[in-house]
């Protein structure tokens, strides 16, 4: 066991260091570039200044598109969970006729290339039904997040023994009561992962939103790409870094919130 313990105590930090360096390296470059005084992305950065961060706040279109993206990410993910959690529960706990069909339909959005989704929605939903762009974006983002919600929540439900809630029902709890008291607390991690995955998927979604932008309405990533087609200065890095910090804040808050709920 000794050699094992040694191997493990070496293996873990080395693996983690390499993986994290690989995953976080680009982020550090972006953060460094945000505080750079130079006109281009560079590492090590040329001097220190806050001018690129300041510039982000002066670009007017960023503000509107940021609001839109935040609304879509939170609203779309919440809607997807509202639809997805009951569906996952049915798929994992019930003898459901056509379960495979339902599972496939619900997870289909994940495998269709975004450009096609955007184009299809524009041509066959927005145009014929005169749906507003904001509503179309909301529907599209909800559909896009739905697979993540169903898959992740299903996975945590499958890994949770179902005899506990069956016992709760036998002991006189209602099915709904058993769900909220027994199941929910145990799949909180899954729901949180689903929310995080959904939020970031929606927030960073580009191809679908490309076609679903209308006069005065578009999402932040699309706006950033449009901006970068014209100029590539560190202000886009600065914006990305700010957004990353915001997302971290949201994830942190979500965990705190869900952590607290354990005791409520």
């Amino acid at each position: 066991m000794n050699s094992n313990t040694l191997a493990r105590s070496l293996f873990i930090p080395i693996i983690l260091f390499l993986v994290i360096a690989f995953l976080i390296g680009p982020f550090l470059i972006i953060v460094a570039a945000s505080f750079s005084a130079g006109d281009t992305l560079a590492f090590p950065p040329q001097g220190f200044s806050l001018r690129w961060i300041a510039k982000v706040f002066t670009v007017e279109s960023f503000r509107a598109s940021f609001g839109m993206s935040l609304f879509l990410a939170i609203g779309g993910t919440a809607a997807a969970l509202v639809l997805g959690i009951p569906a996952s529960y049915a798929l994992s706990r019930y003898k459901l006729p056509g379960a495979e069909v339902i599972r496939t339909v619900v997870s289909a959005p994940i495998i269709v290339p975004g450009i096609i989704v955007g184009l299809a929605l524009l041509r066959y939903i927005v145009v014929p039904f005169q749906v507003g762009i904001t509503l179309a974006l909301f529907l599209a983002h909800t559909a896009l997040v739905l697979p993540y919600a169903v898959r992740v929540v299903s996975a945590s439900l499958d890994n949770l023994r179902s005899d506990i809630e069956e016992a709760a029902v036998l002991l006189g709890s209602s099915r709904t009561g058993a769900f909220f008291r027994v199941v929910m607390p145990n799949i909180r991690g899954g729901i949180l992962s689903a929310f995080i995955l959904g939020f970031v998927t929606s927030f960073n979604q580009v191809p679908v939103s490309l076609f679903l932008s209308g006069p005065g309405v578009r999402t932040l990533p699309v706006d950033m790409i449009a901006y970068m087609e014209i100029v590539f200065d560190p202000s886009v890095a600065a914006l990305s870094a700010l957004l990353a910090f915001l997302s971290i804040g949201i994830v942190f808050a979500a965990e705190r919130f869900l952590g607290f709920s354990r005791y409520v």
Binding site: S61, L119, L122, L210, F211, S213, G214, P215, G216, R218, A226, E229
Partner: peptide, 13 residues
């Protein structure tokens, strides 16, 4: 009301 984007995309729309 202003819509922006590159020429071809906007034309497709």
């Amino acid at each position: 009301v202003v819509e922006t984007g590159n020429s071809v995309e906007r034309l497709a729309k």
